[in-house]
Write a protein that binds this DNA or RNA. Structure first.
Length: 866
RNA sequence: GCCGAUGUGGCGGAAUGGCAGACGCAACGGACUUAAAAUCCGUUGGGGCGAAAGCCCCGUGCGGGUUCGAGUCCCGCCAUCGGUACCA
């Protein structure tokens, strides 16, 4: 935008008020026990998803969510809450490191620079954070506690009976009693198998381009979520977190959360809980058994072959000599396929016969054992019983390889092709005639009695691959001695990464920390773990660190945690409002819930869930209705908007754009609209002199409000209050516009109206509100005291909203035909007869029969004629 | 394929089952101005009748249904966006 006259001097007073808030620490909030803490006030913890301070700078999408929470924070303060509204930096991880590699700057330097820029950008929006609580995940005083929490995981096991984490020492005691003769090695191996943090050699997602492994959640369509590079599966020795132990609780406790249903559904689907049965098929002529998982045990009589995943451990065992060459050829073929190819070619099934047979435990019939890559080693038992008559995939496979298809479920009504629904069991001996549901129960009982199966639950969720081959992350507080891992004592925390000159990926699976010669070896002969933690580690618990950011004794102060997380009594617990994008649905939001539950089990926090209410802000698209991107040239920079229209306009526009949750396109002329509105507010109180100076308008005076004006004022209080509570900012702003329009034409602007308006406007456009408040205070010191932001929130009087006369809608057969003004509270009977007497109604009813009259007092009369 | 969300003027959007289109943008007309910008006032879903006041018809993706009354509730489609993808 070319330089032009500002409609009001936002460029002068916005920075002024930002400095004022900063210097006076206006939005600092004390903890319980601190000076100035007011225990009589209820608490409200409103949280933003903290940003990665990337080199790109702040985006209008950030500004949207941050503005929404800021409005709530300011509003709740005015409602008398102790409001916790903090901000910090998620500065470890791939984006920061990649930026550093690109610019040749050390990541710690780049991070400091980037976060300074981010902070300056946030402050220019006028966000009311308590900057005294700022945190940074790359600060040793912070990640010391990330490492400490890792040690809690490492030193815990999941007790399936109590369904909770317990200290590993308790498992050690239990084991000592049940197996007193364990050797030290046996005992250690047993404990290591049960830790919530453990090491395993398993096929992992390796991204050669990034030089690191990735979690399942970070791989999208066979490519890395960051950068979009190809990902291959390869076995590597890695740290895992036992999130699968919490699968049930992570699903069940979703029900207690005020989260969007869509996000809950995403998490449920991701966890993918399936109820079914595990059935063991003995291998013919062998002692081996093949356990399979199925959700349809009722179709067991229709199982005509088994399929093992190519990576299944029994493959080598069961393969006959005659088939060995063919099987090995197939395995090589599969192994060289990338994940991408494997999914791309998903529709044509491939496989090979092992030559072996298994015995179907219900009818003792032998069934061939095949190998096919449509069976995944990572799900269930890595093997399936194929029921081609009632499963699309098995059907396709059986058709291709000429395997038997045996129908065992009769469809309720005829269907074409393979029937996969529920029906009645047939050709299934003792199951015949039973419904699918009954048959499932019956067969499971049978299997349990026979000792060849049991009811089982399977999850799609995998354990969380927790190590990365990166420099810019938290080092593990772990050392290795004689091939065993050991925890470092808490007194050794934080484990600070070595100051490496060359921190780039090694190009091999070796982590960059392998280059840190002296750092690796400790004096006691142990060597350090060289992997680092993933990006998500720091963000798994940052909302707790805000509660006592400087605490050097504990990861969170216990009293502060009880107060702000509200675990003791009260209907609300945890973070009261958490706003952020949907992109973290199965990443951060799942990981953080997992960590929180572990901390809860171990008695470190007082709530089962971290985030009580979650709201997803929708994406802001470019003016062309496409995702903002540099290549499209449709990116809007919030700094530019602030320079041209001011921070209040940016805030107001982002909120006026549409519902917070909706995806909506940016429009520059829309910004001008709210800018004009703010300028109209300004001119309600201010006028320009001949010299172009702004001064308090002579039209501002104390005067009585007309009843119409009073009604608008009180309707505005009501609407704005209700809308802010519901995060319906767009309609709150619309009502404020109506209110301002009411007074724009008034020759005398009443002080009372201005006062209320500025208070209502304060959370949304705090700079303008504060500035006008201060200026009006000069002329009307008794009406405008203190800061606008410190005013109590106004209440509306319902009496002012109702009038003596109401307009009633008259309908004939549901169609609007006339309106009539009547006394409010007029009885049904009186209203009906008055309506029927109206000339228009008479005209429509003349010569017809009135069949029915629907009367809604004070609202509507509908005459049904026939 | 499956799961979820969304379909309302030229555009962003608003409407506890009860006046569809609040508010804003854009557009048009007027006032102010030498002129423009800015500002202020007004008009603005589509169609028809009327000189005018006014009146009538159509209209919330499509097709059905429930109801005195449906943008809103139910059933069946279509389209767009997001997630997921051989999960047995």
């Amino acid at each position: 935008m070319t330089e032009r006259r500002k409609q009001y001097p936002f460029n002068e007073f916005e920075p002024k008020w930002q400095r004022h808030w900063d210097e006076h620490r206006t939005f600092a909030i004390p903890n319980p026990g601190d000076p100035g803490f007011d225990a009589s006030r209820p608490k409200f913890y409103v949280l933003d998803m903290f940003p990665y301070p990337s080199g790109e700078g702040l985006h209008v999408g950030h500004a949207e969510g941050y503005t929404a929470t800021d409005i709530l924070a300011r509003y709740k303060r005015m409602r008398g809450f102790n409001v916790l509204h903090p901000m910090g930096w998620d500065a470890f991880g791939l984006p920061a490191e990649q930026f550093a590699i690109k610019t040749g700057q050390h990541p710690s330097l780049a991070t400091v620079q980037n976060l300074k820029r981010f902070k300056a950008q946030l402050q220019k929006i006028g966000l009311s954070y308590d900057w005294g609580r700022e945190i940074n995940t790359t600060d040793p005083g912070y990640y010391r506690w990330t490492q400490w929490i890792f040690l809690q995981l490492y030193d815990s096991w999941f007790d399936p009976e109590q369904k909770k984490a317990r200290p590993i020492a308790e498992l050690n005691d239990l084991r000592a009693r049940s197996h007193p003769d364990d050797t030290a090695d046996e005992r250690r191996a047993f404990l290591d198998q049960h830790r919530l943090a453990y090491v395993t050699e398993a096929p992992v997602n390796w991204c050669p381009e990034l030089g690191t492994v990735l979690a399942n959640e970070e791989v999208v369509d066979g490519r890395s979520e960051v950068g979009g590079f190809p990902v291959v599966r390869r076995p590597m020795r890695q740290w895992m977190l036992r999130i699968t132990a919490y699968a049930d609780r992570l699903v069940e406790e979703l029900d207690t959360l005020a989260w969007p249903e869509s996000i809950k559904t995403l998490q449920r689907n991701w966890i993918g809980r399936s109820q079914g049965a595990e059935v063991r098929f003995p291998v013919q002529g062998s002692l081996a058994e093949v356990p399979v998982f199925t959700t349809r045990p009722d179709t067991l009589f229709g199982a005509t072959y088994l399929v093992l995943a190519p990576e299944h451990p029994l493959v080598a065992n069961v393969t006959t000599d005659a088939q060995r060459a063919a099987v090995e050829r197939y395995l090589t073929e599969v192994a060289t396929k990338s994940d991408l190819e494997r999914t791309d070619l998903a529709r044509t099934k491939t496989g090979v016969f092992t030559g072996a047979h298994a015995i179907n435990p219900v009818n003792r019939q032998p069934v061939p054992i095949w190998i096919a890559d449509y069976v995944l080693v990572s799900y269930g038992t890595g093997a399936i019983m194929a029921v081609p008559a009632h499963d699309e995939r098995d059907f396709e496979f059986a058709r291709k390889f000429g395997l038997e298809i045996r129908e065992v479920v009769a469809a309720p009504k005829p269907v074409e092709g393979c029937f996969t629904g529920e029906g009645t069991a047939i050709n299934s001996a003792f199951l015949n005639g039973l419904s699918t549901e009954e048959a499932k129960r019956r067969i499971i009982t049978f299997l349990e009695e026979q000792g060849s199966g049991r009811s089982a639950i399977s999850y799609k969720l995998r354990d969380w691959l927790f190590s990365r081959q990166r420099y810019w992350g938290e080092p593990f507080p772990i050392v290795w001695r004689n091939g065993h891992h050991e925890a470092l004592p808490e007194t050794d925390l934080p484990v600070v990464p070595p100051p490496l000159e060359d921190y780039r990926p090694t190009g091999t699976i070796e982590p960059p920390l392998a280059k840190a010669g002296d750092w690796i070896r400790l004096s006691d002969g142990t060597t350090r773990e060289l992997n680092t933690m993933p990006q998500w580690a720091g963000s798994c618990w940052y909302y707790l660190r805000y509660l006592s950011p400087g605490d050097s004794q504990r990861f969170v102060d216990a009293a502060a945690e009880r107060y702000w997380m509200g675990g003791e009594g009260g209907s609300s617990s945890g973070v009261d409002l958490y706003v952020g994008g949907t992109e973290h649905a199965v990443l951060h939001l799942l990981y953080a819930r997992f960590w929180h539950k572990v901390l809860y089990d171990l008695g470190h926090v007082s709530t089962r869930e971290p985030f009580r209410q979650l709201v997803n802000q929708g994406m802001i698209l470019g003016f062309d209705n496409h995702k903002m991107s540099k290549s499209r040239g449709n990116v809007v920079n919030p700094d530019d908007v602030i320079a041209d229209y001011g921070a209040d306009s940016l805030r107001l526009y982002e909120m006026f754009l549409g519902p917070l949750e909706a995806t909506k396109p940016w429009s520059t002329s829309g910004v001008e609209g709210v800018y004009r509105f703010l300028a109209r507010v300004w001119r309600l109180a201010m006028e320009e002199t001949q010299e172009g100076q702004w001064q308090l308008s002579a039209a501002v005076a104390r005067r009585e409000l007309s009843s119409g004006e009073r009604k608008v004022i009180h309707a505005t209080i009501k609407k704005v209050t209700e809308d802010l509570e519901a995060l319906a900012f767009n309609t709150a702003i619309a009502q404020l516009m109506i209110c301002v329009n009411e007074f724009t034409g008034a020759p005398v602007k009443p002080v009372e109206a201005l006062r209320t308006l500025l208070v209502l406007l304060n959370p949304l456009a705090p700079h303008l509100s504060e500035e006008l408040w201060a200026r009006l205070a000069h002329a009307f010191p008794t009406d405008f005291t203190g800061l606008a932001s410190a005013q109590p929130w106004p209440r509306y009087n319902p009496e002012y909203l109702t009038e003596d006369e109401v307009e009633v809608v008259l309908q004939i057969n549901g169609k609007l035909r006339d309106k009539v003004l009547v006394r409010r509270g007029l009885s049904r009977e009186a209203l009906e007869s008055q309506a029927l007497a109206m000339p228009k109604v008479q005209a429509y009813t003349a010569g017809k029969t009135v069949r029915k009259v629907v009367v809604v007092p004070d609202k509507l009369v509908n005459v049904v004629v026939g």
